[in-house]
Design a binder for these strands. Sequence first.
DNA 1: ATTATACTCCAAAACGTTTTGGAAGTCAAG
DNA 2: CTTGACTTCCAAAACGTTTTGGAGTATAAT
Lengths: 337, 337
Amino acid sequence: MAVTLKDIARRVGVSITTVSRALGGYDDVAEGTRQRILQAAREMGYRPHTIAQSLRRQRTNTVGFIIPTAGPRFSDPYFTEILTGIGNEAAEHEFDLLVSTRAPGAQEQEAYERMVGSRRVDGLLVIRTRCRDERITYLVEQGFPFVAFGRSDLDLDFPYVDVDGTKGLDEATQYLIDLGHQRIAYISAPPNLMFAHYRLAGYKRALERNGLPVQEELITTGRLTQEDGYREGSRLLTLEHPPTAIIAANDLMALGVISAAQERGLAVGRDLAVIGFDDIPLAEHSHPPLTTVHQPIYEIGKMICRMLIQLIKNEEPVQRRVMLEPALVIRESSGGC
Amino acid sequence: MAVTLKDIARRVGVSITTVSRALGGYDDVAEGTRQRILQAAREMGYRPHTIAQSLRRQRTNTVGFIIPTAGPRFSDPYFTEILTGIGNEAAEHEFDLLVSTRAPGAQEQEAYERMVGSRRVDGLLVIRTRCRDERITYLVEQGFPFVAFGRSDLDLDFPYVDVDGTKGLDEATQYLIDLGHQRIAYISAPPNLMFAHYRLAGYKRALERNGLPVQEELITTGRLTQEDGYREGSRLLTLEHPPTAIIAANDLMALGVISAAQERGLAVGRDLAVIGFDDIPLAEHSHPPLTTVHQPIYEIGKMICRMLIQLIKNEEPVQRRVMLEPALVIRESSGGC
DNA sequence: ATTATACTCCAAAACGTTTTGGAAGTCAAG
DNA sequence: CTTGACTTCCAAAACGTTTTGGAGTATAAT
């Protein structure tokens, strides 16, 4: 059986209270007693019973994270990276991480209600914010602590971190225009995702600023998978007047585009420029290496987790809205280097 | 404030016990009373306090999963997929999932001790078993329920699921030999990983069976990243007598090899055959599509999670050792189709 | 010698459940 | 009218902590 405060108390010949206070570092226990207690605890291999602590303190020291998956064979490396960030930061603060994996929809909403209602976690992390995001409405309504990765179109005040996707796509587009490209296609993200709009806006803004037409036939949408990138890339390349450059809303789709181009015998970087977004590790070692808009995914994971924990502990006034600058990382897939 | 059994009891005019029993579905509460209680619970939005339940029942209904990461920018899609499997299966059984992310080493061991000692989880999932795996020794020693993905070289009896890597690599190698390849290189995994040995053994077995020499210069090792695949691939291709085929211990490295080959102007599938292992979704849509040894990662995640939950509930006699057959998926990267 | 001040300690309550071991009440059978 | 068997209910203990509000004792100040 696991050893409890009671066991230590009995062995040292002292009350449970005193053991608790000695271990808790309070100064109302004599130095000698404290030593005997610490020693006994060590010898007996005492570990506090987290569940009991949580119940009593009304604090679980746990953050929740519901990963919005897309089907069973879901394997976006993006999520591993952000999860690593979140997990490592949580560990640093001695917080645990409760994870759920649910595809967006009713079951996902239920998962949120479960986590909030059952009081298993002190706060939640929301990623990939959506238009009229019900998760956010719900959490704000419940007054439940959370931090989001991504802004919202709801008129609600909540803490978030985001990357300026408009700027990122503007820069990427401008870079291609500067290289002389006139027909630049864009594979956008599902329109219910907030970032889809920001990035699309950046693309359009750059075109317009340079007096280039925004052509509907060059704008398409994919579900952020490599497969969709491949499919949409193929479509674009078989257009009567195919684009000379393709930007994808994320790296995975950009990699799909590269496959599509290579299958057609095009040399990516020479015959066709390709740019992605995210800068997942895969991007650096693709062939050719992918030009992409870098966002510090791991750091963002750490950051939102840190902010949430601050919020929970209501420590120092948290910076509630963090906007990060993306950076265009130029590699070979865009040519011109 | 959250509503408790006490609140319902007061409102319905009945004891806490009765409320608990009504909600728990016991048959010692009158039908009328039960209805009034259920109704009140619904109206008041009652949600059981999981922590309190756990404390009382001495069961957390939570499984733990410590992801062995490799550095901050860790983003192996393999882990997202297995996590999705685990998470979805857990949800089906109304179990929660507590995740930690730790690089192998002292901190990882501590994470295990924390999870076990603090009694926050009812069982653990161990993946990527290692030689003389301390995690396994520890868990067996503690008598703590767990299920592993991967066998062990320890003389211990524990439940696991594994894929026959020897067979997988044997088949892959044989396939290349049948295509006429004589110089087949192999990029192995870090030797502390159990699967590294099984796969390597399969490679050697096939060579020997066919009377081909096992050449040290054609066997190398990478840390399972695309980067290492690229590096080792480059090295192999600049050998005086370069191989005509390269097998990598996982898909990510195989993708790195493809990059290395293409950079040298080799047409993968024609000038060089490449085969991976895992069959991550990325493999299907690379260019050219990657021939690889398929293992059902998502299903394995579900399976080990299901087995663990059975173990915890000590339901039906669990099948303790599951060995899955891998299947060679032939795509273009290996040529010959 | 009294009072004040530290210093150590602890009993008991509380967190929200589940479970045990009856206590009432009702009803049919003897 | 008793007895026994059901049915329906509940008080209290327990799970392992933390925290509150003192109690007791020794020491210092008056």
